[in-house]
Write a protein that binds this DNA or RNA. Structure first.
Lengths: 143, 143
DNA sequence: TAATAATTGAAAATCGTTTTCAATTATTAT
DNA sequence: ATAATAATTGAAAACGATTTTCAATTATTA
């Protein structure tokens, strides 16, 4: 179990959650991937080591991790959910560059939308509270 | 039936689609809204004038309109789909400013992501083929 | 070690969406 | 106009992802 996984486990314990083998394994799968993973993907990976796990447990654990801020939930264009361990300093503003071919994800954080948002607020009267940017492309390996 | 609706109807006919009252009414509902609408929203609005319509017909018509490029399909953060009549010159690059409160949508097209995309390509080796930006906020009426 | 409260997995339920299929309707060639 | 046709329709069933229910199990605590 990696340092990253261990730290999250400790924090979860502090927050009153019980530490179960299922939760550890789910975190490990997330930690060992630089691709976004669907609940089913995670389920299948965990089953290799822990065949008794139920898909429900994966959903429930992802919900906890998402609410606690340890993972990012992506909504893919198809509408399906995919998850990603957060690897940037806590709460830092960032976006994702996603490979359409293999799902590999790279973070970037210099989005510089503030100016555009100001313009748009002036023009439309909308107060802008958040934004999402998703860049879609192909990673070097998939080109 | 508005001009906008009429023009789309004509184009659809040219493309070999039959013109049915259901399709006209669905287009009218889209045309008369500046908010994004779910299939169920559209279904309910059309039913006021045409109670026999089936939800399937709404789905099928939306699929046709989307493929033909007359409407935008949004994937909301929840993963659900919502639709919007395109109101900008054919094919023009644009994004949406969405009111989180009422769903009102305003277009903007000066996103200027080209520079950022170049930086990121240089850094990561990803080839970027498309991007989506969604600005979330509150419209003047909802503030 | 015993008491407890949280967590688990199986099964059923739910929700949006898609498929199937027979009946209907818009278009066309006459 | 009318008949022939191929597309479109709506009901019902099927579907896939996600959520809920519930009794049994397990991690934690005292």
């Amino acid at each position: 179990m990696s340092t990253s996984t261990n730290q999250i486990i400790k924090s979860l314990k502090k927050s009153g959650y019980k530490i179960t083998p299922q939760r550890k394994l789910i975190l490990d799968v997330l930690n060992n991937s630089d691709h976004h993973l669907s609940p089913a993907n995670i389920y299948n990976k965990v089953r290799e080591k822990y065949p008794e796990i139920g898909l429900v447990t994966v959903y429930r654990t992802l919900e906890i991790l998402d609410k606690a801020g340890y993972i990012c939930r992506l909504t893919l264009p198809s509408g399906l959910a995919a998850y990603l361990l957060k690897r940037c300093p806590s709460g830092q503003h960032h976006h994702h560059l996603v490979c359409q071919c293999c799902g590999k994800v790279v973070n970037f954080n210099n989005c510089n939308l503030a100016e555009l948002e100001k313009e748009i607020t002036d023009e439309t009267g909308f107060v802008i509270s958040s934004h999402t940017i998703e860049l879609n492309g192909k990673c070097p390996a998939c080109q």
